[in-house]
Amino acid sequence: MSGVPISWYLTLSAILFTLGVAGFLFRRNIITVFMSIELMLNAVNLSFITFSYYWKQVNGHLIAFFVMVVAASEAAVGLAIILTVFKNRQTLNIDEVDSMKN
């Protein structure tokens, strides 16, 4: 019975990571930028778990687990910061949060 070649999983991870980077660079809404960061982290998790399958060890699962934990705490603090920025600037567009310029 044929399985899925492992390079397909790694390519999928690369595609998702690329889409995350594209969203991070091109979007102006700060929440969408944040979601692109989460997309990048998920792509990396897929890569770790794929390599854990390749080496038949559980360490990749553990690293992916810690990535999830750190992403959770980062999302909590980041969204609190976004709420504060919105309260002060009334905008979610990162082009307009530039009061320190000039």
Partner: peptide, 8 residues
């Protein structure tokens, strides 16, 4: 890099 390895 990973010839012939497949995921079952």
């Amino acid at each position: 890099l990973f010839p012939g390895i497949s995921v079952h």
